[in-house]
């Protein structure tokens, strides 16, 4: 589980975390290409929404793959073995960085 190791670093190593997000180039998920693997940098939206996304497996640090781009329509992403459809609106609020 490589992705978890990465999260662990992010989490436990505070110095890294402070510089991390600023340095990594990030973009909205909506701009990722089909087939691209990306890591979630931040989730916008209310607290309830963020928790909900978390419980569905979309967390800061999770690695996901864009299976199909939306525009128009929802994006299809793979998070582990789960396939999620994410509305275009939401895809603009999830910031990711390419892996």
């Amino acid at each position: 589980m490589k992705q978890m190791a990465v999260v662990h670093e992010l989490y436990s190593d505070k110095e890294d975390q402070q510089t991390g997000p600023a340095v990594t180039p990030c973009m909205p998920l909506a701009m990722a290409c089909a087939g691209e693997r990306v890591r979630i940098v931040s989730l916008a939206g209310g607290r309830g929404m963020r928790q909900h996304l978390s419980s569905m497996g979309l967390n800061v640090g999770s690695e996901i793959e864009v299976i199909r781009r939306g525009h128009p329509g929802p994006f299809l992403v793979a998070s582990g073995d789960t396939r999620l459809a994410i509305g275009a609106g939401m895809a603009h609020k999830i910031m990711v960085s390419p892996v």
Binding site: M1, Q3, M4, V7, H8, Y11, Q17, Q18, R47, R50, Q51, S54, S55, N59, V60, G61, S62
Partner: peptide, 21 residues
């Protein structure tokens, strides 16, 4: 520099990831 609920959620996934591994 992160909310407690974020930290808790991340930690849960971290542990889950460890168990799965």
């Amino acid at each position: 520099e992160q909310t407690a609920e974020q930290a808790i959620a991340i930690r849960r996934y971290q542990i889950a990831g460890g168990i799965v591994e």
